[in-house]
């Protein structure tokens, strides 16, 4: 866990200036996640979508071939996107471009790093490539975001080098209920750790199946060592504001925008709602007359629960 320490501080030896660039450090990786806080990251499948997202105020886009709702509908194996598509989207926008690799598929991650994407999402939305191991994310210079249903899973991903955690929710459903479940689970477990005495942390680390030093850090600081965003089922400005009020620091919106009647307006409204999540008057204003949201699904009706992927 030594790579965890922030190397940044004014204490240096003597006056020697370490002026050469240190790239891919943990602080540099986490730094980009900090810059995305309070923002909306939107799934896009074409350069045209990416432009719409950027114009609506997205802080980043997630380049993929199919939004989760279509992945669900089509079935089959979902993989990393075609590099040509990712490059087209990189050319289309000036904001950060993220892309997804399959869980454990470190070669897809190597390809995404070589493409120069800004963040890699090791994502349960794609079909896992390894049912035991996640990618060793310390081995990469590009930062990773990973999904988590609960605190233990979040801390395991952080121990593997993730620089950003998103609660998983249930992607492609337009149903916020799982997103709420997961963000609540993570934040309430953090509160429980904060009130535990030190002797209890050993058992709690075991219970969460998480490394003790990370459990101690969360207990001491009251938050994850990396930002916590929320994903999976956000379809309206109110959904975005809900998860923000529950403790998310930014939101990922997948199918919710481009599966709706008026993507451009809905996207801008979700950006406003995420920024001003505690202002009901503004939420009224931005929620008005947006057209149909994506239709969405009951969780009980799903054949495949994506959030169960990852370990």
């Amino acid at each position: 866990m030594n790579s965890h320490d922030d190397t940044t501080s004014q204490k240096r030896n003597g006056d020697a200036l370490a002026q050469e660039r240190a790239t891919g450090t943990y602080l540099v990786k986490r730094g980009l996640a900090e810059m995305l806080r309070g923002g909306v990251i939107m799934d896009v499948v074409t350069a045209e979508h990416a432009k719409i997202a950027e114009d609506a105020g997205a802080v980043a886009v997630m380049a993929l071939e199919r939004v989760p709702a279509d992945i669900r509908r089509d079935g089959g194996v979902a993989r990393m996107s075609d590099p040509a598509l990712i490059e087209e989207i990189q050319r289309a926008v000036t904001i950060p471009v993220m892309a997804k690799a399959r869980i454990g598929h470190f070669v897809e991650a190597q390809i995404l790093q070589a493409l120069g994407v800004d963040y890699i999402d090791e994502s349960e939305v794609l079909t896992p490539a390894d049912e035991e191991h996640h990618i060793d994310k310390w081995a990469f210079k590009i930062p990773f975001v990973c999904g988590a249903n609960n605190l233990g899973e979040a801390l395991r991903r952080i121990s593997e080098g993730a620089a950003l955690i998103r609660s998983k929710g249930e992607a492609g459903t337009g149903n916020v209920v799982e997103a709420v479940r997961h963000i609540r689970s993570i934040t309430s477990d953090i509160r429980r750790l904060s009130s535990a005495d030190h002797a209890e942390l050993y058992a709690l680390a075991k219970q969460h199946q998480a490394p003790l030093p990370l459990v101690e850090e969360v207990a001491n600081t009251g938050h994850l060592p990396v930002p916590l965003f929320c994903a999976g089922g956000i379809a309206t400005p109110a959904d975005a504001a809900l998860v923000m009020q529950l403790g998310a620091e930014a939101v990922f919106v997948g199918s919710g925008i481009f599966k709706s009647e008026n993507p451009s307006r809905r996207a801008a409204a979700i950006v406003e709602a995420t920024a001003h999540y505690d202002d009901p008057d503004l939420l009224v204003k931005v929620s008005r007359g947006l057209g149909e949201a994506m239709s969405g699904s009951e969780i009980a009706s799903l054949n495949l629960k994506l959030a169960e992927r990852g370990w």
């Binding site: 190397t7 940044t8 240096r12 200036l17 370490a18 002026q19 050469e20 660039r21 240190a22 790239t23 891919g24 450090t25 602080l27 540099v28 730094g31 980009l32 000036t94 950060p96 790093q113 120069g116 994407v117 800004d118 963040y119 210079k141 590009i142 930062p143």
Partner: peptide, 14 residues
Amino acid sequence: NGFGRQIASFEADL
């Protein structure tokens, strides 16, 4: 983004 994308992000002494 004159210094480039995230892969080029860095820390250094000033």
